[in-house]
Design a protein around this nucleic acid. Structure first.
Lengths: 112, 112
DNA sequence: GGCGTATATGTCGGACTTCTAGGCATTAGA
DNA sequence: TCTAATGCCTAGAAGTCCGACATATACGCC
């Protein structure tokens, strides 16, 4: 039945958040989910079933570029970096998010 | 292929926004979409294929209660009003939205 | 009378996103 | 040895939103 209150999250912002985190520098998928959880103080929990499809989606659209490298722990991992197109896309999405959250704020704050 | 840039909208906030608008007082579906467009200064355009299913969904969950009445124009229309459960739900969703948009702001604002 | 536009409700199918639940493999530590 | 953490992945189900379509009434205009 899905508990909408407890798990109320990403709602279409996942791609933007991933792009933003990758914008800090090349990073692999597993680390992205940790970073996101960490920065958001445990609010955003990206599950692997959402994360990896999202990464492939972003790669398909030409916003991320993967490269296999050795991770901090000495194991092989797929590091993603932002492409030029990806940087532009991130800008668009952030702009879009700003306008969208403003609009929501306006409606929620509206009185009678 | 869907142009995500031009059409970037409700992202899971539709239910909350509808509840909030109905919270102002009984109102029918068609008027809800107009109100939303108006208050948000044309940002949110709820399409009929989203609006009516959403209203039925909210009714099914016991958050809205419908009543057929005559509209301002003299025609029959289905006026919705917020139930007690609906008011509580709205509170939860607003709280949830606040925390979610804070978390997004934190990530977007994070530096290196 | 006939026509177009705004009002008003609705359904259907498709595209898309996220989650749950699983699988596979390696490494570090108890 | 066995468990947890790291690291990648997919398949299927559920849910949301949109575009397109269908229906009907009221009103103004020609």
């Amino acid at each position: 039945m899905m508990d909408k209150d407890k798990k109320e999250f990403l709602k279409g912002t996942l791609d933007m958040l991933i792009l933003k985190i990758v914008a800090f520098g090349p990073i692999h998928g597993y680390a992205i989910s940790q970073r996101m959880k960490e920065i958001s103080k445990d609010f955003f929990q990206v599950h692997q079933g959402s994360l990896y499809p999202a990464l492939h989606r972003l790669e398909d659209r030409g916003w991320l570029e993967p490269e296999w490298k050795e991770s901090e722990t000495g194991r092989e991992a797929k590091f993603y970096k932002l492409t030029r197109k990806g940087r532009k896309q991130l800008g668009n999405e952030m702009e879009s998010w700003a306008r969208m959250s403003d609009a929501v704020k306006t409606i929620l704050g509206a009185v009678e």
